[in-house]
Amino acid sequence: MGLNLKDWLARCPLVAILRGIKPEEAEAIGDALLAADIPVLEVPLNSPDPIESIRRLAKRFGDRALVGAGTVTNPGDCARIAAAGGRLIVTPHADPAVVRAAKAQQMICVPGFFTPGEAFSLLAAGADGLKLFPAEAASPAVLKAMLAVLPKGTPVLPVGGMDTTTIPAWRAAGAAGFGIGSAIYKPGDDAAAVAAKAAALRAA
């Protein structure tokens, strides 16, 4: 599969945020998510040994999954993540320098934003999509207004508070995808728990 964010989101609009995952759990959790056809896997850098988890996921799932890092705040981390096989960079904040560093490594980059000014500066730096964060502080109406002014086709993914109850309204407002954290994985969840949560989210 190519390095096109829209292709991955067309397959499944959910991004699994595996905050707190340990390297020894990564492959079993990845298996459960791929079995549920959720192929975009994000390991936040504030997890235990995140680069090793990314390396194991990328090695096991190869081109069947889009594996990368979240909570990336330092442009210098992009090269380390790419070297481990990561192909996705997600940030919590609007920093064009991280976007440029990710694009220099030929990675997909989905930086965080909250205002139109941030959105346009990130797109100018080469962002492939935008993460509306924290989505709890916005609303589907805010997303709809943003999409009216952003370049047509810009994928916007709300992150924060996304679960089976909130997804439908955001989807109706035009969200291209969703970053799912504790609603799909929290530390201590085994593969069976993740598989059950993944199935419910896919249905939503």
Results as ranks from 00 to 15, higher is better:
K186N: 02
A28N: 10
D77A: 11
F133E: 04
L14K: 01
K144G: 09
T91G: 10
L132I: 04
G160I: 12
G30S: 06
R55P: 02
G117S: 15
N46L: 03
G85C: 08
G85Y: 09
L123I: 14
E27P: 02
G126S: 02
L14Q: 09
R87K: 15
A148T: 03
V194C: 13
N46D: 15
T71A: 08
T166F: 10
D128P: 08
A145N: 07
H93Y: 13
P44C: 03
P168N: 03
W170S: 07
D7W: 03
T154K: 13
Y185A: 00
F120S: 12
L5N: 09
A193H: 09
T115V: 02
G112R: 07
A102Y: 04
A32Q: 07
P134T: 07
Q105K: 09
A135C: 08
R56N: 11
A196Q: 15
G179K: 01
L88P: 10
D77G: 04
V156R: 04
D63M: 12
G85T: 01
P96I: 10
V67P: 05
A203L: 08
V110I: 14
G160S: 11
A204S: 15
I38E: 10
L33N: 02
P111Y: 02
P151T: 06
F133I: 11
A141Q: 14
E136D: 14
A26S: 15
L14R: 00
P158Q: 07
M107E: 09
A192R: 14
G177R: 03
L122V: 01
L143E: 06
L3M: 15
L9K: 04
A183S: 15
A204C: 08
T164N: 01
T166L: 07
P155R: 07
A26V: 05
P50H: 06
P155T: 09
G62N: 11
Q105M: 11
G62W: 05
G20P: 08
V43K: 05
V194E: 12
R80G: 11
T91L: 02
A102H: 02
K186M: 01
L88T: 00
I167T: 05
L132E: 07
R11C: 11
A193S: 13
E136M: 13
A125L: 01
K6P: 08
K22M: 10
